[in-house]
Design a protein around this nucleic acid. Structure first.
Lengths: 240, 240
DNA sequence: ACCTGAACACCGTTCAAGT
DNA sequence: ACCTGAACACCGTTCAAGT
């Protein structure tokens, strides 16, 4: 029943303690471990006690996301709009690395919370203060998408580029199967095993996620800067 | 028990019928309706009968994604690399609009299936055939991310720009609450209600998702073309 | 005001049995 | 070879009751 250090009994619940405990539980055991029943158990309380502090499970998840967003640095007012947005997004990325479950939770939420809206409002404000037109900012927010929260689809995380440790632990039949799979997708293998980065900056996978995140971000922000400098207005940006 | 037309009994199950029925069920009632138990009921079969054709629920979800990816057009060999990739991604987007649940399922999957790898392999092949370096293609695949499958985070889908129908159905107290919320996030409201598009092309929301998708895609592909023309090689693209 | 207990209607999945 | 039935260990949540 009791899981030792994790059980913190008799302290009178409040919403903050519920949310902080839920975040810690997700950080340690993954988001699937965050069930109303297990969270209650960690808090030393019966499941229904939680419902006095969060309306339902979705409200719990919203609260967890809000708690994570609060860790993101505000934009630096000393910087120009592009650097201010860039810096804040990189801060958001660090936060998301600390709470890797947050990406999937945010993607699963239907409506943004006031905290999410406040974050977006502040980011939009930085663009507008930089002189970008409302219409351009509209498109830019779409184009950046979830990048403004510091994450993207990390497609190559699970691609067939095994770490040396994994390779060593593999049996001969598993290795043969892997080579057969690799032979079927030569382009994926070529691109996944390319080492475009400074060898010193990357240890295992040959893939520097920080570099890739900034590459995509700068491709987008660079394009926006170019459009803005050319006095971009509504029509003619996309052509079929 | 029986839900009329949905129940198709006595036809001997096979994997294909299981997957096709699961896709149809998700299209009609959403992904949450796709439980092993409910899918079995629609097929007129006991839940455990499914396990002869899919190893477990995750394998069912993988199979559903594979079925959806099979609907995407192959790249047009008559086009240059940029237009070929662009056309295929727009085809993928149409497919995702037909199966809106597929985005979340793909995001939740841990490892890519062979069908996912084959799709990526073919897309990478188009870039390489166009003369882009392996290193550049590596970064480009990261930068495009889930866009190559035809979707992005659609942040504004649920932002506070209500449709006229919704507004009309609102009570006065709900309307007052909404105005209060709007007052707290003026930048979000300004950007969400901007009408940057040809008024004829958009009916309700003032937001043309097709335009936004292509805007972001072209910002990225345009940046890549520019890098490629300049003979881009590994270093110096991202600066801190 | 806050917490509890029992119950309801669901899940995915195992195991042993039927045909 | 394919399907069934009963059971196990979980879910989120309601309702009525305790202190």
């Amino acid at each position: 029943m009791a899981e030792g250090a994790e059980v913190a009994r008799r302290e009178r619940l409040d919403r903050d303690r519920v949310l902080r405990t839920a975040v810690a539980l997700a950080d340690e055991h993954g988001i699937d471990a965050v069930s109303m029943r297990r969270l209650a158990q960690v808090l030393g309380v019966v499941p229904m006690a939680l419902y006095k502090h969060v309306a339902h499970k979705d409200a719990l998840l919203d609260g967890m996301v809000d708690a994570v967003l609060a860790e993101i640095d505000p934009p630096d007012p000393a910087l120009g709009w592009a650097d201010a947005v860039r810096g804040r997004i990189l801060s958001a990325r660090e936060v998301m690395l600390r709470h890797p479950w947050a990406r999937r939770v945010m993607e699963s939420r239907a409506a943004p919370t006031p905290v999410v809206l406040a974050y977006m409002d502040s980011t939009i404000g930085t663009f507008l203060a930089g002189g970008l037109s409302v219409d351009l900012v509209h498109h830019v927010m779409h184009a950046l998408g979830s990048r403004i929260f510091g994450f993207t689809q990390e497609l190559y995380d699970n691609a067939p580029g095994p770490t040396p440790d994994e390779l060593a632990a593999l049996g001969p039949e598993a290795l043969a199967a892997m080579q057969q799979t690799a032979a079927m997708f030569p382009n994926v293998v070529a691109v996944a095993t390319s080492r475009p980065h400074d060898p010193g900056s990357v240890v295992g996978s040959g893939c520097d996620d920080e570099f890739e995140f900034e590459f995509g971000l700068d491709l987008l922000l660079g394009g926006v800067e170019r459009l803005h400098r050319r006095g971009w207005s509504s029509s003619g940006a996309a052509s079929v």
